[in-house]
Every structure is written in structure tokens, then in C-alpha cells.
Design a protein around this nucleic acid. Structure first.
Ligand SMILES: [Mn+2]
Ligand SMILES: [Mn+2]
Ligand SMILES: [Mn+2]
Ligand SMILES: [Mn+2]
Lengths: 220, 220
DNA sequence: ATACATTTTTAGACTTGTCTAAATTTCATT
DNA sequence: AATGAAATTTAGACAAGTCTAAAAATGTAT
């Protein structure tokens, strides 16, 4: 059975919304995410339920079935692989990438995505730090975390950022915290959750606002 | 104004069909190409006419307006650029490529296609010998021709084929006429339009059936 | 010029995804 | 437990694209 773009987008957003709470995803939350009306969401949910892609009881929200989940994860895989391609090979900037990937993720060809994956060298994370599931739908082990939450004492590397304002980018540049920069996390101050890192033999203080927007990776 | 996938496919096929005759494209021809019914074609043509993308008089067939033509040529550009990418960078085989390109051609992002074009090195022809228009919609000078029609005496190179049966492919392989093979056209026999070529110091006869399915290129 | 076949258009219906407005259910407060 | 607010579903409508069956136009062959 094959899905329309619309159905795929619904499934993907149900998946993403359901990550942040045990209960089913609410009609309104979904409507807001998809920039559509609650009544439209109800209609679509019924269609997805008829196809056994979601479980649905009136007024109780939706959850994905195994089948629906596999499709959702597959869309995420495609989205992130395309983003890697656009950024690393076509020279796109961080922000331009998402909208195009939003369309490319719906191109349906297993061959295509497998070969793209190979071409890209089987990346495990996209440039925003998002983990890329393999073709079985399995996500890589989470060896990656926001600097915000990293264990003190770790050697780490800047893998991505979650804030893309010019202000933030130039700030990072000034500090020397560019993509790929390596440093040690020396200390975290409970008072304001600011951190102290050592980068190229310099000691630097970072506010919580900065730390929470930097993705870092660590080994093992 | 933005077009749906469907509208874009109609425009593209009107363009291709109108290349082979002066008159407008007939409803039935279009229906057959698009694997749909004549009545559906009539409906869509009226929609396109309302958008000023085609000129249409009842029972007289359609032709593209300047606007419609630009859109059609743009789709062809995208289709062929994607085919180059799939073949040269993802390792697709000649036949697998088309169906995927049929979907990719509808991804709408000028940035994307300009960067893809650059990434590919601004190719002028796709691997089937199809010329790739530039972003203004201008096709490259036709320096490429079927062996069928090549001027006797030319040095040429195999650039593509227009027949993809196993039988034909193995035949070519046996003759040494693979993609990129270089040879001279020595003679053409009017009797049956067969040709004589010289390839790697060997003289080979090719029937018209073979010659008409080989694209060759020549300089200046 | 007439008759028949082919092509094209129209009429009416269906599916997908959306919307507004109204009805229903659930939830929070008293 | 009652009530009002918020969330959700239903009812009915619409646009896009398609289809079948029937009507109209065009082309062809005597
Ligand atoms: Mn994205
Ligand atoms: Mn999408
Ligand atoms: Mn093609
Ligand atoms: Mn297409």
C-alpha cells in the first residue's frame, strides 16, 4: 500500500509529537503542527485508522501502529539523508535546507534512498544533530547530546547547533566554537547552569543559553 | 503562480508531442501518453487554458503559450539534471533512472536546481543524449545526432542509446560500441542505410536498425 | 452529398483533502 | 453534582482530478 504526501506528513508529525508524552497525540496539537484545521485532522485520522496506520478512539487522541511507525521513521530517514546531501554536497546553508527536504522526503524509491545513503557514506546524524535511522528503522545509539546535558569531564566535539540566528553564529565564531571544534567540559555551575570549557588551551565560560543550543558528540 | 504535479506533467507532454507536428496536440494523443482518458484531458486542458498556459479551441487540439512552454522546458531541465545525478553519482543503471526522475522533476526550488546544476558541472546533455536547457530555457547547440544521420567522414564518440533491450545491449558490447567508444564513420550505403565504421583499427558494418539507436557526438 | 466511424466534448458522479458552522464530549471549577 | 469553557467530532460544502456514458463535431468513403 502506498501513501500520499499528505498522509506521510501526518504520520511523521504524529510520530514527532508522540515522542514528548505518553498519551495519544491530540487533534489540536496535530492541527497546529500541520497548519490545518482540527476538523481536517479528524477526517484524516479516520482514514489512517481505516488503513491500520494509527490507533484511534474518539476524543482520546491517536498513536501510531507498528506499520504507521515504520512509515514515519522512514520519512525521517529520507528527510535527514537529503539534508546531509544538500548541506555537504550542494553547499546549502543550514536554514535553506529544511523546506526542500520537506518535499524530497516524499520521493518513493528504496533504490534511490539506499544509494543516496551509500553515496553519503552512511551518515548516522544529520548536521542539526538529528539521528538517522537505518533502513530497518533503527536509530543509532545516542552518543550525542546537548552541551547543556553533557557529563562534566568529557572530551567532546561540536556536531551541530539548534539556533541559527546571525547573532548566535557570530558569537560562536568569535569563541572559536565552530563545527568540528574539539574541547573538554571542565565544570558546570549549578547556580546558572553556565559551563567552563577548555578549547585550544584557553578556558572559556559559556552561559546556559549558549550551552543548550550546541550539540556535542562523545565516544563510547 | 504554482503548478501541481499533474499540471506539470500535462505541460511537459504537450511540449514533447508538439515537437513532432505543426498542428496542435490532439486530445487522444495526450490521453494515451498520460495513461488517462480523453475526457480527463479535455477537463485539464480547459484548466490550463484558463491559466493562460495553453491555447485551446474546441476540437482543434492544444498548443503551449510562451508561459506554458517555459514551464515545460523547466521540467525537462530538472528531469535531465536529476538523471545525470542519479547515473553519474549514485550509480544507477540506465533504465532505473527515468521513473525516479519523473518524480524529482517536480520538486520546486530554483536554488536546488541551480546548485545541482553547478554540482554536476553544468552538463549540456543527459546520458541518453537529451540536451539540457539552461535556466533561461535555452537548449545547447545540437552537436549531437543519431549515427543514422551523421555526416560521413566524421570522427565521433558514442554518447548514448535509444534502445535498451538486453539483446541490443549485448550486441553493442560484442561490437565494442560501449558508451564513450570513439570511431570514424567511413561510409553509408544508400541501399539499406547500413553504415561502415572504423573502431580500434577494425572495420565494422552496422545495420540501419543499429545505427538509428545510437547517439553520437562530434566537435564543432 | 450521405452515411458511418472516429474524435472530442459534455453531463453527472466519485475520491481526496480541505473548510465553516454546529453539535457533542471532556475537563476544570465550583 | 452542576456549569461553563475548551477540545473534538459531525454535517454539509467545495476544489482538484478522474471516470463512464452519452451527445456533438469532424473526417472518410463511397
Ligand atoms: Mn529538517
Ligand atoms: Mn513533507
Ligand atoms: Mn528520462
Ligand atoms: Mn513527472
Amino acid at each position: 500500500m502506498s501513501q500520499s504526501f499528505t498522509e506521510e506528513n501526518y504520520l511523521k508529525h504524529i510520530y514527532k509529537l508522540s515522542k514528548r508524552s505518553e498519551k495519544g497525540v491530540s487533534t489540536n496539537a496535530l492541527a497546529e503542527r500541520l497548519e490545518t484545521k482540527a476538523s481536517s485532522v479528524t477526517d484524516m485520522i479516520k482514514k489512517l485508522a481505516a488503513k491500520k496506520l494509527v490507533d484511534y478512539k474518539k476524543y482520546q487522541g491517536v498513536t501510531l501502529t507498528k506499520k504507521g511507525q515504520k512509515i514515519a521513521v522512514d520519512i525521517i530517514r529520507k528527510h535527514r539523508l537529503w539534508e546531509v546531501f544538500l548541506l555537504e554536497h550542494l553547499g546549502f546553508g543550514g536554514e535553506e535546507v529544511h523546506d526542500v527536504a520537506e518535499e524530497l522526503e516524499h520521493i518513493n524509491s528504496e533504490t534511490l534512498i539506499d544509494r543516496l545513503d551509500k553515496f553519503l557514506g552512511h551518515p548516522k546524524y544529520d548536521p542539526h544533530g538529528g539521528p538517522i535511522p537505518n533502513s530497518e528503522g533503527v536509530f543509532p545509539e545516542p552518543k550525542r547530546v546537548k552541551l547543556d546535558e553533557l557529563e562534566v569531564g568529557r572530551k567532546t566535539k561540536v556536531m551541530g547547533i539548534t539556533e541559527h540566528s546571525d547573532a548566535f553564529l557570530t558569537h560562536l565564531k568569535k569563541l572559536g566554537l565552530e563545527l568540528g571544534a574539539e574541547f573538554d567540559l571542565k565544570e558546570r555551575f549549578d547556580f546558572d547552569r553556565s559551563v567552563e570549557i577548555e578549547l585550544n588551551d584557553k578556558t572559556i565560560q559559556l552561559s546556559h543559553d549558549v550551552a543548550k543550543n550546541i550539540f556535542v558528540s562523545y565516544n563510547s
